[in-house]
Amino acid sequence: MQHTWVILGATSAMARAFARALSEQGHALILAGRDMDDLKTLAADCTLRGASDARALRFDAREAKHDAPILDALEQAEGTLNAAVFIGSMPEQARIDDNPLLLQGVMQDNFTGPARFLHAFAPMIEARGGGTIVGVGSVAGDRGRIGNYAYGASKSAFHTYLAGLRNRLGRAGGHVITVKPGFVDSAMTWGIKGMFLVAAPGIVARDILRAVNKRRNVIYTPGFWRLIMLIIRTIPEPIFKKLSI
């Protein structure tokens, strides 16, 4: 069956690994992001790896005007339509504390921008009676922690949105997967102090593909983060608020 995947934030490390894996399966790709030169290079690489089609289109979560060309390209594509959202930003919490105006950008990049696009895309899945959406959130969204609670709040909102969208699209044959990675070796996390158990982007891409094939609802990747976050979520609040984690 012909599949077309749109990947938002396609030049991120996790998205690149995911796009290459999809290419090897022969799917068509719409690679969307802000760096057009990098996207075009990635599109050429995906074509060489076996993608039936690979094109680059501009997408910025803070600019709604970029949605329409991508949605038009999807409307014209044949077969099952799918989307994977890797886009996001994570300024240091200290920077946000110094300049609260940065909160708007964090919410746009991690929640409102992706949700805006997916809400316009959802009717296409309903009309065709199938398709998958992969939304990449974060373990940071499971509980507000002093080190990154602004970023965590934006991801928590995205998780909630994806849960509701999963309920909606499941009634029309579609499916939505919420992905919660831990620390991943990427440009966004480069140089951050205190990281541990850092995963390679290829490991995350592998876990996402497995989740797509098995129609999983929510996954932690790597899988041990499910236990770590279970422990963090169950720490009583009087104790938790004294911890620097």
Rank of each mutant, 00 (worst) to 15 (best):
I133C: 05
G135Y: 01
G135H: 03
V139T: 12
V139C: 05
A140G: 03
A140W: 00
G141I: 01
G141T: 01
D142C: 10
D142T: 03
R143Y: 02
R143C: 04
R143T: 00
R143D: 02
G144L: 04
R145M: 12
R145P: 00
G147Y: 01
N148F: 07
Y149M: 07
Y149N: 04
Y149H: 11
A150C: 11
Y151Q: 02
Y151F: 11
Y151H: 10
G152V: 00
A153T: 09
A153C: 06
A153L: 10
S154T: 02
S154R: 07
S154D: 02
S156L: 04
A157F: 04
A157W: 04
A157D: 03
F158Q: 03
F158E: 00
H159W: 05
H159Q: 11
H159F: 09
L162Y: 03
L162H: 04
A163L: 12
A163R: 10
G164E: 09
G164K: 04
G164I: 11
L165S: 08
R166D: 15
N167F: 07
R168Y: 04
R168A: 12
R168H: 15
L169Y: 01
R171E: 13
R171A: 10
A172K: 10
G173W: 06
T178L: 08
T178H: 06
V179P: 00
P181W: 05
P181N: 08
G182A: 04
G182V: 04
F183Q: 05
F183H: 09
V184N: 01
D185L: 08
S186H: 07
S186G: 05
A187R: 11
A187T: 10
M188I: 14
M188F: 09
W190H: 14
W190Q: 14
G191V: 13
G191P: 09
I192F: 12
K193M: 13
K193A: 15
K193P: 05
M195W: 04
F196I: 11
F196E: 12
V198S: 09
V198I: 13
A199I: 09
A199H: 06
A199M: 08
A199Q: 06
A200E: 10
P201A: 10
P201K: 10
P201Y: 13
I203R: 11
V204S: 01
V204T: 08
A205Y: 09
A205W: 09
A205G: 07
R206A: 15
D207Y: 11
D207H: 13
I208F: 13
R210D: 11
R210Y: 11
A211I: 04
N213Y: 12
K214C: 14
K214S: 15
K214Q: 15
R215C: 15
R216A: 15
N217G: 14
N217D: 15
V218F: 11
V218I: 14
I219C: 07
I219K: 00
I219L: 12
Y220E: 05
P222H: 08
P222E: 02
P222A: 12
F224H: 14
L227G: 08
L227W: 12
L227I: 14
M229D: 10
L230W: 13
L230K: 09
I231D: 08
I231M: 09
I232S: 01
R233L: 06
T234Q: 08
P236Q: 05
E237P: 03
E237G: 02
P238H: 07
F240P: 01
F240E: 06
K241V: 14
K241P: 03
